[in-house]
Design a protein around this nucleic acid. Structure first.
Lengths: 339, 339
DNA sequence: CTGAAAGCGCTTACAG
DNA sequence: CTGAAAGCGCTTACAG
């Protein structure tokens, strides 16, 4: 059915080996032969069969991209397309394709990754998240398969190639900014607690409070687990504290807007009554009301570097693990006010 | 290096063919042998090599997903993750993997699709968009490779399997709704004009106006080309018309909010001065201000059915092309008011 | 500069 | 119920 290397060889009057060498643009083949063979390939509409080629080359020219496939609001945001755009760009530049994990649960993801790796479906893997005690990362570390992570690994980060923002410091900067505006009662709404990024942000938050002699109070914090699907109630509780916060740091712009919505239902205005700041700088955030102050984390660059890191490992197994910190930048807009 | 079928065969004291049959759970193999072989596989950590397996089976157990890889606002939205979640779910259920196109330009996408198809990298393709005169779709139609489209093909739709909303009618319903609220001067902000969905929506808009004896006026419409990157100016012009619109239909929630932002800069309030309605019902839209009236287009289901359609074709080449219309639903919220 | 041969890791008629 | 052999479509030492 499909045109094979043999068909081309026959028609061009050469051996299959020669055709193969023409495809690889082997310099030992005469240009006369090359021209002839290429003509025949064109004429016959020949395309090399990946499976065959990869089988003998023991590679797949493919990167596995592993993500959580969740329907929650934090995933309903532009992080994914944007990081993928970064990965795509870099991968495409090196003729690599992208294979996506499709698992919905932890277990599905795990077994898919094992299959990808052992079945030689991919040459390397990019893990789009970093969480505590993640069996996927454990497996990857042991497997010897090149991989990189978007997000600092919880365990033994120096032995793993990853790209991340400096989440402790960018959160510090954020909280500093609010303190600079005169806020003292600052709440923190974080993501799922098993994500390292959530830990880091919380850590940055705590450190800044400590530096300014503001006591840390758990009651001023919330996270995905605490809210347990009832964000509205969590916000209500927060604002019902004896001394309610005058500012709230949220881990994602979309979540920030969700919070703003709940606040408005409570007749609390942003920024008049409460200041809010987000993370991730979604393209839409500057158009919304209020225009959200946020932290741009260079999502595209995260993707670009993550791809770069695996690709490096694939090309040269012996390169030591590398850590890339991508810059982030506080963007002041209208959602915070000076007290 | 990696454990092969031969290693297993040797250790289990059987032939490679037998091991292969155990993997396939061939009923002609004694359960005693199966147990033994499986033990050895487990012990050795054997996983079948996809490349080899697919080479002989002449399949790849992979679906290609082709999308535009753009940085524009309309792509910076949850459509992509959500449709992918639908595709993933269905694909995973049939043990299919997902291969993503990574091209940024039309040309890159085209040559990638040709490679995917001819190189047998994928068994079928899902095209995540439908545009006029798209060479990718032309190629796919001729190639014989199973494929499905999210969006009605412009040419010869009956010969192609696709899934879509009824975009003419859901736009009609939308415009009817606004007319029902007393609006007569209704503007339409559409997407790129070469997308069939844009055509359909515009058509629905025109038809409804005609049915109500409202003359169609080009000046009340805008689209990505007309706005040419300067959406702000386009909105300014729209509102500077002698009789400015009292309502605006936009093709996407994110775009609706962008428009609302520009209107506010012009001191025009939504919905007090102008009503606005969006499309796609992003998860965040109900939390934003104003809560956006919009059309839910069941993105997840679009993905699910798109996957179902290719998978059907792959399983049985002879099934006739099928068209699936996924329901959409107008959601009333606070962004439209009665005149 | 080119070809014959072996082999990548699997599957599947064909025999028994 | 199981094995030997051929073959999927390619690449790559080895020879010449």
């Amino acid at each position: 059915m499909a045109v094979t290397i043999k068909d081309v060889a026959k028609q061009a009057g050469v051996s299959p080996a020669t055709v193969s060498r023409v495809i690889a643009d082997n310099p030992r083949i005469s240009s006369k032969t090359k021209v002839k063979v290429r003509e025949v390939m064109e004429g016959l509409g020949y395309y090399p069969n990946f499976q065959a080629r990869n089988l003998v080359a023991k590679k797949s020219q493919t990167l596995g991209v592993v993500m959580e496939n969740s329907a929650t609001l934090a995933f309903q945001n532009p992080f994914f397309p944007e990081v993928l755009r970064g990965i795509s760009t870099r991968a495409h530049g090196s003729q690599y394709g992208l294979y996506l994990s499709t698992g919905a649960t932890q277990e599905e993801i795990y077994s898919e990754v094992v299959e990808m790796a052992q079945g030689r479906r991919v040459d390397g893997i990019i893990l789009l998240y970093s969480k505590i005690g993640d069996p996927v990362m454990e497996y990857l570390s042991k497997s010897g398969l090149p991989f990189s992570v978007v997000g600092r690994p919880f365990k033994d980060p120096c032995s793993i190639s990853y790209v991340d923002n400096d989440n402790i410091n960018n959160t510090k900067e954020t909280v500093e900014y609010l303190i600079g505006l005169g806020h003292r009662h600052i709440a923190f709404v974080g993501g799922a607690v098993d994500f390292v990024v959530s830990l880091d942000r919380l850590e940055g938050y705590k450190q800044t409070l400590a530096q300014h002699g503001i006591p840390f109070d758990e009651a001023y914090t919330a996270n995905q687990e605490l809210m347990g699907g009832n964000e509205r109630e969590a916000i209500r509780r927060l604002m019902a504290l004896e001394v309610p916060p005058t500012a709230i740091v949220t881990h994602d712009d979309m979540v920030a807007y969700e919070v703003i919505g709940y606040l408005e239902d409570l007749k609390i205005q942003v920024p008049e009554d409460v200041s809010i700041i987000g993370f991730n700088n979604h393209a839409i955030s500057r158009h919304l009301k209020p225009p959200l102050s946020t932290v741009d984390i260079s999502i595209y660059d995260l993707g670009l570097h993550a791809a770069e890191l695996v690709l490096e490992k694939i090309t040269d197994e012996s390169v030591p693990p590398k850590q890339v910190i991508v810059s982030s930048r506080l963007i002041e807009r209208g959602s915070c006010r000076r007290l």
